[in-house]
Amino acid sequence: MAKQHVTTTINGNPVEYLCESRQTLLEVLRDELHLTGTKEGCGTGDCGACTVNVNGRMMCSCLFLGVEAQGKSITTVEGIANGEKLHVLQRKFVEHAALQCGICTPGMLVASKTLLDRNNNPTEEEVRYWLAGNLCRCTGYNQIIEAVLDAAKEIRGA
């Protein structure tokens, strides 16, 4: 099968790649571009481990084709920090012990950042519903919710 040529932006960088039309963005990121920070937990859009941000919206990259990235702007977990300076969410996740095994963390971070980019003053309930598509089996979510609320507070300068 002839491969498709795709021109896109990933984590602020112009990127070109060839992919089969059936390949998901998740497969392209991990297997072609070696951006393995985005994780596969299910491949069916149920766990959120592969969450990336596409043009400001969060998306399961396992449900999004590589060819659909044409002309779009994509942010993965590798693109959240500013150089060696961690994003406030990344810092708060570490400080609050919001990860145990860490496999859901990339998706949680991308999803949380998408929320805080829109609303930097969410309630606990809003955070819980926003992250309801991101499964974590280790933490029971307590410390993740606390980290997101604390990060929002810092962003607000409160």
């Binding site: 991990r30 951006l35 393995t36 920070g37 985005t38 994780k39 596969e40 993965t76 977990v77 590798e78 959240i80 920090a81 961690l86 990344q90 996740f93 570490v94 012990a97 990860l99 860490g102 496999i103 963390t105 990339p106 971070l109």
Partner: peptide, 16 residues
């Protein structure tokens, strides 16, 4: 935790 930063930046290497 000592392994916190690689796990929030996506560089930690898991089985896959």
């Amino acid at each position: 935790r000592p392994d916190g930063v690689p796990k929030v930046t996506g560089t930690a290497q898991y089985g896959a």
